[in-house]
Design a protein around this nucleic acid. Sequence first.
DNA 1: TTACAAATGTGATCTACATCACGTAACGCG
DNA 2: CGCGTTACGTGATGTAGATCACATTTGTAA
Lengths: 192, 192
Amino acid sequence: MEAKEILKQHVSKTAMLTDEQFEHFFSHFKPKSLKKGQVLISEGEKVDHEYFVISGCLKAFFINDQIKMYILQFAMTTWWTSDYGALYNQSKATIGVDSITDAEVLCLSNQDREKLCSQLHQVEHFFRWRTNKGYLASQKRLLSFMNNDTKARYEELLALYPQLYNLVPKHLIASYLGVSRETLSRLYNTHR
Amino acid sequence: MEAKEILKQHVSKTAMLTDEQFEHFFSHFKPKSLKKGQVLISEGEKVDHEYFVISGCLKAFFINDQIKMYILQFAMTTWWTSDYGALYNQSKATIGVDSITDAEVLCLSNQDREKLCSQLHQVEHFFRWRTNKGYLASQKRLLSFMNNDTKARYEELLALYPQLYNLVPKHLIASYLGVSRETLSRLYNTHR
DNA sequence: TTACAAATGTGATCTACATCACGTAACGCG
DNA sequence: CGCGTTACGTGATGTAGATCACATTTGTAA
């Protein structure tokens, strides 16, 4: 399916836009092809776009003291990603975003998003719901962190995104779970 | 300051409403006085309101297997709280909300929020930003969880909300930090 | 004021996971 | 094709924090 169609279906789940309105909306997105490993946002730099994933898999991550990496999000088709803190506050990136596989994304600038939100009530509605969904997911993950041990969180992740197991290297999954790669390795080898 | 004035100042930070619009907005909130320990949302029941805190301190929490409690949020003045997952999905509460101190809140029903959002573009704008702020806070807390040890998270919490130390019992702070009350106790006794 | 419940302090022990250390397998690139 | 980098497996050891057990202190309602 074409990028435009994927976005249209995605948006239509929460916002009613006429064809004309959608065309206007869509005209603000710039398509971009990414190669495996390609960087979209790197720490310390200005952030002015968010990204809607058409295909492939990106990661949003935080690096502590130049040493440990924690993955905030694996972004696959129909997911949005960026350093939203930096984007909304017009500050430098503290979160990096790059591509784990070859990928296709649509880029939307912060300015254009705000313009579209104020022009079209339905677009503002859409972004409220999108953010809300993200908020709920984040809260759920926080609870999972406090409540479950590593093994349970690992199984939870794979139940939700089975494709991840073959798509991304294991040490990235460990970074998402917040454990060392060694512990993750022992987890699925010891256990079966 | 009066409840109405507190809400007005809070909203005016992100949304421009005329006096008339604000009156209409405000007319959908019902004030409620809470006593220490009073329950607003309990697990398994229907959720149809969210709450804007005027004074006092509430907690939103999750209880695992009827045993361990994890605090998702301490809600103080100008904070919003509810079981948003249940509220938006019209499902039964999995998260509880009650009052830690005597408190004053304004209640807004899910239905009224959605009505107001569709009636007034600026209200939708306001709720988008509010949710966005919540999302960023949640993401930050998640990172803190992965990145910092208990002591650092404890100090971070108290730096952000110094009043909590005297306002709420220590075992609730432990529940927020995701550690046992014993560990928290040792933390500030061993350490100074 | 008494009396019971809730909150807190503190020791002893146990465990999941981090860290270090090293070896092997796979892969991408000249 | 071979070679280096990246991914992955696995043992040994250290440690933060959980859990259990019990004492003490504080709050609260009758």
